[in-house]
Amino acid sequence: MPRFLLIVFILAMALTLLVPLGEVVRISFTDELGAPTLANYRDVLGAGYFRNALLQTLAFCLFTSVGAALLGLPAAWRIGRGGSGAVLLRGFCQANYAFGGVVYGMLAVALIGNVGLVPIAEYELFGTEVTRGFVYTTAGLVVAYAGFQIPRCALLLAQAVEKLDPDLLRASRTLGARPAQTALLVAVPLLGGAIVNATVSTFLISIASFGVALLVTRSFPIFGMLVFKEFVGFANFGTACAMAVSLAVAAFATAGAMRRLASGGVY
């Protein structure tokens, strides 16, 4: 029975993942008449706009993922070590998985859009409109992405926190270490691998998410959003597939480089 279930699982993965992926790759190497060509990749990687958008998207998702891992550490510590509010915090982070990127885009617009809660409160209290339309800036896009990145990082890191040896933490306190020293010199090094894994996982999720950008970005070209527009808006299927393949290769190459750098050049 276990072997039968394994075979069913492999076949299901092949049908739902490998077959569609193979079709995307095939279309990326064919022209409108079905003839083999590299023109789609020349259009994507040779065009300055698409190439720059790809590089900017990689840098943006890498920067926000590292920030999310660091900002998610306090919540992960509370969830992993227990204490007041830990259950509620875990539930809040888990609820994050119930919402798609479009929902977070809508929440960001409702919070810091032109008529969001924050601009309205600012105007009523101070008579200014500094935060009006903030969500449509690059900084606003960072805030919108952080809305789903930080909770997911916190949950991933909480699993590692739960496995920390409490004797090591108690020993550091016994030797006179302050809480901040225990956190920075004992806990963080022990969580180094988990922090890297959480960053890489969040980076790959962010690369594939474009719902937030679809609603809020006006000047920053998120590559996934451009793939969506090429496929749905312009019906340039060959170009869209070449963009998708290029994005996947670049994303996994970047993730591999992150892991290798974090391990000191050793896999």
Results as ranks from 00 to 15, higher is better:
Val118His: 07
Asn52Gln: 13
Ala47Phe: 04
Val109His: 00
Glu230Met: 15
Ala208Met: 08
Leu169Cys: 06
Val25Arg: 04
Leu89Arg: 04
Val118Asp: 05
Cys93Arg: 08
Ala177Met: 12
Val115Cys: 01
Arg26Ala: 10
Gly80Val: 05
Gln181Asp: 15
Asn197Thr: 12
Ala208Gly: 11
Leu21Phe: 15
Gly34Thr: 01
Gly211Glu: 02
Phe63Ser: 12
Ser65Asn: 05
Cys241Leu: 03
Val161Ser: 07
Val227Trp: 04
Gly48Cys: 04
Phe220Cys: 07
Asp167Val: 11
Arg173Phe: 03
Gly113Thr: 08
Ala235Glu: 14
Leu88Pro: 01
Lys163Trp: 04
Asp43Cys: 07
Gly83Asn: 01
Phe63Pro: 00
Ser172Leu: 10
Gly91Ser: 10
Asp167Gly: 11
Glu23Pro: 00
Gly46Met: 11
Arg90His: 10
Ala242Glu: 04
Leu55Gly: 10
Ile150Asp: 01
Asp43Val: 12
Val196Asn: 09
Leu204Glu: 14
Pro221Thr: 13
Ala139Met: 14
Phe203Arg: 06
Leu261Asn: 08
Arg42Cys: 04
Gly105Lys: 04
Leu185Asp: 13
Ala39Thr: 13
Thr202Leu: 11
Met258Asp: 07
Asn52Arg: 13
Gly147Trp: 08
Gly127Pro: 06
Gly264Tyr: 09
Tyr41Glu: 08
Arg90Val: 03
Leu169Arg: 09
Arg259Ser: 06
Val66Phe: 09
Leu164Trp: 01
Lys163Thr: 14
Pro189Phe: 07
Arg78Tyr: 01
Arg173Trp: 10
Gly67Phe: 06
Val142Lys: 03
Ala248Ile: 12
Phe92Asp: 00
Ala68Arg: 09
Leu190Ser: 03
Gln94Cys: 09
Gln159Trp: 02
Val232Cys: 01
Ser206Arg: 06
Leu204His: 06
Glu122Val: 03
Val227Ser: 03
Arg81Glu: 07
Pro119Thr: 08
Arg173Pro: 00
Thr239Asn: 14
Leu88Phe: 14
Tyr267His: 15
Val19Gln: 11
Leu70Asn: 02
Ala250Asn: 03
Val161Gln: 09
Leu89Pro: 00
Val44Met: 08
Cys93Tyr: 10
Leu88Gly: 08
Leu185Asn: 13
Leu33Met: 10
Ala110Leu: 12
Trp77Phe: 06
Gly127Val: 01
Gly72His: 04
Ala240Val: 09
Gly91Met: 07
Cys93Gln: 05
Tyr267Cys: 13
Val200Phe: 02
Leu175Asn: 10
Ser219Gln: 15
Ser206His: 05
Ala187Ile: 14
Gly100Asp: 09
Ser28Trp: 04
Arg90Asn: 14
Ser65Ile: 02
Ala235Ile: 11
Val266Ile: 12
Ala14Thr: 15
Ala183Asp: 08
Glu23Phe: 14
Leu214Met: 10
Ser65Phe: 09
Thr57Ile: 07
Ala208Phe: 04
Leu71Glu: 02
Leu6Glu: 13
Val216Phe: 02
Ala251Arg: 13
Gly265Val: 08
Val102Ile: 14
Ser219Asp: 15
Leu157Gln: 05
Leu156Glu: 02
Glu230Pro: 01
Phe50Arg: 00
Val196Gln: 05
Gly256Met: 07
Pro221Leu: 12
